[in-house]
Design a protein around this nucleic acid. Structure first.
Lengths: 217, 217, 217, 217
DNA sequence: CATGAATGAGGCTTCATTCAT
DNA sequence: TATGAATGAAGCCTCATTCAT
């Protein structure tokens, strides 16, 4: 966790630091990410990093927590109770996910890497958190929907959960393919990750969810 | 590609080398994988590696080709024509995939990493091959099945393909969760990756495929 | 070009570094020169070199520029306009060349290597500069002197230039032979390269220039 | 010196070996030359080199002796007694030098490197031989010509010798410049080093010798 | 006499981290 | 609190040479 020194930094400085670090860790795996590059990008002293964080891992953990918090802020604005239909709720979650992408591209990419590309042993202990949390959430929902009759009770809960999570996570890839959006290029050019029409994305999401619904009902 | 020196090695030596290298590249991303560790593990001289391969990339490419060949050997034993029903064929492919896991755990894990975890720029040019190949195959099938009436023609081909591929690739994860098998631990301990009853796996696969069929029909 | 880190070094440290590096690159061709030897000689850490320069080539280029600058400082103190006779001017240039040898033996030896011994492909792109510059200068002079009647117009300019340059560069060798001075030994022992009486050197130079003048008049 | 094994090799094998080795040592300094590349070029076993020669230095020394012998064979065909005029003799030596270049381009280039580019400490002990031999020869001639009245006795012998040797050795460079012949390119392409009209070369040499004669007479 | 696999020292370079100022 | 020079382990790779077959 960051030192008080870091927290006492001016808002602007802190944000600049966070963004540069996020960019580095979004572009590279933990092992390959370079503190060197971060300080060069920022034009700050080598030592500063170690006045803010005890070491590379500490910095990484902070960025992870920070990004997860950002995501939570966006996602949690969707209230389950506002939807009578589970699939509408599920769709709304997706939509918020896209908004998160647009508003916090760095966080988004960093979390994407953590979730699906990261494999350094140094951080392996900290990778499971989000997935198991998601599994809990989805398990809860599936059980609810089984009772409500939205999901076929004969389908093993675990299988249904797997289905839903797999699709949630692979949606990014689908969108990239369908719209030939190259996240990496947009990222390099400083554009928002999703540069094309967001409503088309919604349509694609709708189609996908219809399939899921059909499978699970 | 390997030098003659490597090909002239005794079968036993060559296999030992391949396994150690596979293990290293299965355990670590390209950038993080260490030639040093490989030679320490094998107890051979640093220079030997470079008598066998021109450089790290050359070694990696060989392991990739080797593993893909191993997988092909296993997968291609399944003949589409032997099945009247597409889903039966699909199920058979899965089954062979599991066999491949059992027979070639290192290759399997290495290919898994290449397909889903690798992000080094050094090898990025060589990563697309398999995915685009798979997409072509699945696209072909989906179109066939649409004509045959097995798959609902109103579902966009691209979406259906995405669905099928996502499930094919995430199956491993599902199996790990369902049976609480930890591939990594088994891997470390030298056990086969899938240590429990294979017939239960088949059941899980069947259930999953039923969902897919339901969604896509 | 050196990093700020290098430029911020204390004058003393920087000079120590430059001298050690010059010594290494004066003693060995680019390919054979060893960063390792430099740091051992200096008793500094391996990484320091790469905090000062981006790589070996960068270091070499800096030393080249540095040495050329040193030489320029010495040579440019001779003003063509101060001499009515070209041969007097030419003699003065020689004299300054000897002074440069005495004051900057390392630079002198390094430049000598660059000009006549270096053959590494890595630096081949950077070798021509000085020679072609010298050729331009001498061509200019020869044409002037032809008009002034000092140099026989029937002698092809190119030949005359070659003559003058060859002599300029081989003068060092002549001096070594005539006075049995062994630059290498003096160098090793830390003595100035030219250990004997400088006025005798002047006499030798005079004799040589008389020959040149006779040939070209 | 080569082992009997080498001398017992078939003429053809031996020549192939010599040429490949010469090419390597003509293209690279002693330190940079690679036994690796030689055996790759020849397609022979690593060990063979060490059955023929005790080590790299031994091989180099053999090539040096071999090349010098080849040059001697060509040069010594010019008999001093066949010329009444020293400058005619000197000119004939040059001409033979050019012939040597044409007939033994590899040897020629190798000797050129040894004479002017080599600086490895490993071979430094063996570099002086040719130069001091040449100096003896030229000293002898100069003294003779002083007595004969061809060379002005008031010019110090040492200076005259230096003059003659400098010009002999820099002639190559002059020819390259004047005729824009790029030895290196011709060498790579397997052409004779001097690809253009040899009679033009003779003219250039004549001009140069006239200058020398004028200076020294 | 030929072979070619094995060796390990040494090359350049990058990196996270420390610590005196 | 900020700085940035120093550190040395570890990375990949090349090389001349040896030696069992």
């Amino acid at each position: 966790m960051p030192t008080e020194t870091f927290l006492n930094l001016s808002e602007e400085k802190r944000q600049r630091f966070i963004e540069a670090a996020l960019k580095e860790f979004a572009d590279h795996n933990y092992d390959t990410a370079s503190v060197n590059r971060i300080i060069k990008e920022l034009g700050i002293a080598r030592g500063s990093v170690y006045q803010y964080f005890t070491d590379k891992l500490d910095l990484w953990l902070y960025l992870k927590e920070y990004s997860e918090q950002q995501k939570m802020n966006v996602i949690q604005s969707v209230d389950r109770k506002a939807f009578t239909n589970f699939w509408d709720y599920y769709r709304a979650l997706f939509t918020q996910g896209i908004h998160f992408d647009l508003q916090h591209p760095l966080c988004s990419r960093f979390l994407y890497r953590i979730g699906y590309k990261e494999s350094s042993k140094e951080v392996s202990n900290y990778l499971d958190g989000w997935k198991s949390k998601a599994k809990l959430m989805f398990t809860h929902w599936v059980e609810e929907e089984k009772e409500a009759g939205t999901i076929n009770p004969s389908i093993p809960t675990e299988l249904a959960v797997h289905f839903l999570i797999s699709m949630s996570t692979s949606i990014t890839e689908l969108l990239q393919n369908k719209y030939e959006v190259n996240f990496d290029e947009n990222f390099k050019n400083g554009k928002p990750l999703i540069a094309s029409n967001i409503t088309e994305f919604q349509l694609a999401v709708n189609e996908l969810i219809q399939l899921l619904a059909k499978a699970l009902t």
